[in-house]
Simulated scan of single mutants.
Amino acid sequence: MPKEPETSLAEKTFVLEALKQNLRVDGRELHAFRDVQLIFGDDYGFVDVRLGKTRVLARISAEVTKPRSDRPFEGLFTISTELGPMASPAFEVGRPSELDHTISRILERSIRRSHALDAESLCIVTAQRVWSIRADVHFLSHDGSLLDASCIAVITALAHFRLPVVTVSGEDITIHDVEERVPVPLSILHWPICVTFSFFGDDENGETMYLLDATAQEEALRAGDMTITVNKNGEICQIAKSGGVAVEAEILMRCARLAAEKVKVIDKMIGDALREDELRRNKGNLDWLKEGRAENDR
């Protein structure tokens, strides 16, 4: 299997010594994120997220299907990830890596299992027809923090997506065209955002060194990592820590508080980007959208 180029001893020594002095190669502070860019496609539910040089695409699709027999009132929601050689030569098509499994598992726990999407709102006819929502995540460039970028991508794409209006008459189900009835947004209960911490042992003062939004070079040198998923209300949805250095309870609490602060900023950034895109699509006028939604309600 192809591998990423190994970090030389000189690079490793330079990066670790710099971290002990609270310095990073790209000039950021230890607890700072890189600039996040959100680019929306022409279709609803398509988002291009750029976190530094890391680039992730997310696309939401929907189809009408039968519900699960044990959950007749709920729609379906799945997340599919694809790590390929376009993102990095270390990834191969058709051979999921450990990182691929980790990202898929944590996204599942962070978004689907935290009930970010209201599954009952996807029901069309109980035990007969429901909406099946699918989020496809594609990684185009890998320079660290793939999990954080993909979580932002999925949440933003879900908030950006619009479902066609459906009317039920007896046993007939009619899915209206976008030009006929204004599509409606998904019912999202909260926006869980992943924040990953990378650990590098102790600094000169004996304090545990940890940083946010690690680059690919920093990830290759870290001694351990931990991902905390939080929403803007400060509610922790999940914590994932597998292997690596041990994390003391005090450090864990610091990380949780820091994650909550960062998520508030990211949440606002996503909301502002969505509003700007809606204004752009409607040329600064949202009155027609409000009227369309009122008409749909009637």
Rank of each mutant, 00 (worst) to 15 (best):
P2H: 11
P2Y: 13
K3S: 08
E4K: 14
E6Q: 13
T7M: 11
T7V: 09
L9K: 05
L9P: 07
V15T: 09
L16S: 02
E17Y: 09
E17P: 09
A18C: 11
Q21W: 10
N22V: 07
G27N: 04
H31W: 03
R34A: 00
D35V: 04
V47N: 01
D48K: 05
D48N: 09
L57F: 10
V64I: 15
T65Y: 14
K66D: 15
P67A: 06
R68H: 13
R68P: 10
P72R: 08
T78A: 10
T78I: 12
I79W: 08
T81Q: 04
G84N: 10
P89N: 05
P96H: 04
S97N: 03
D100I: 06
L107R: 04
I111R: 03
S114V: 02
H115L: 14
A119Y: 15
L122H: 12
S132D: 06
I133F: 15
D136G: 11
L140R: 00
S141C: 13
G144F: 00
S145I: 04
D148L: 05
F161Y: 14
T167S: 15
V168I: 15
H176S: 10
V182D: 10
P183T: 03
V184Y: 06
L186F: 05
P192T: 03
D202C: 12
D202F: 09
M209I: 07
T227C: 08
T227R: 08
I228Q: 01
I228L: 01
I228Y: 00
T229N: 03
N231L: 05
G234C: 01
A240C: 07
K241Y: 03
S242N: 12
G243C: 08
A246H: 12
V247Y: 00
V247E: 00
V247M: 01
E250H: 10
R257F: 06
K262I: 11
I266L: 11
K268T: 15
D272A: 11
A273T: 02
E276W: 04
R280M: 11
R281K: 10
N282V: 08
N282Q: 13
G284F: 07
W288N: 15
K290I: 13
K290N: 11
G292F: 02
N296I: 02
D297E: 14
